[in-house]
């Protein structure tokens, strides 16, 4: 499987990663190598095999709808890279 530089750029945008030209070249080669190895999976006949997303058989786990104590706002905001009053602050979104 060959991953072109253009595909690398497309995926990087989806993943919100800014890559340097050098990183794009290296990733194009490395992802191609890894996906070539992954093609091994096509040797396996998986017709009618259920996919496993999780090993424990589980249904939705619900809790009772009871109000409990949450973390205090100051503690939650303590790690914020930027804040104003009781809010997270981000660069301007709407012009």
């Amino acid at each position: 499987m060959k991953i072109t530089k253009k595909e690398v750029e497309h995926v990087a945008l989806l993943a919100r990663l800014k890559l340097t030209e050098e990183e794009k070249e290296v990733l194009s080669k490395q992802l191609s190598d890894i996906l070539t190895h992954v093609e091994k999976l096509n040797e396996v006949d998986t017709k009618a095999i259920e996919p496993t997303s999780h090993v424990i058989k589980m249904q939705n786990v619900m809790r009772d709808d009871i109000v409990t104590v949450s973390l205090p706002i100051e503690k939650v905001l303590a790690n914020a890279p930027d804040r104003t009053d009781e809010f997270f602050r981000v660069p301007k979104i709407i012009e």
Binding site: I3, E7, V8, H10, V11, A12, L14, A15, L17, L27, L31, I34, L35, V38, L41, N42, V44, T46, I49, E50, P51, T52, S53
Partner: peptide
Amino acid sequence: MLGTYALSAGYYDAYYKKAQQVRT
């Protein structure tokens, strides 16, 4: 990058679902 590629439109069945079936 690898994970985003495997989950991206058009590749999900070929990679992610196939890998989940092999996991079974």
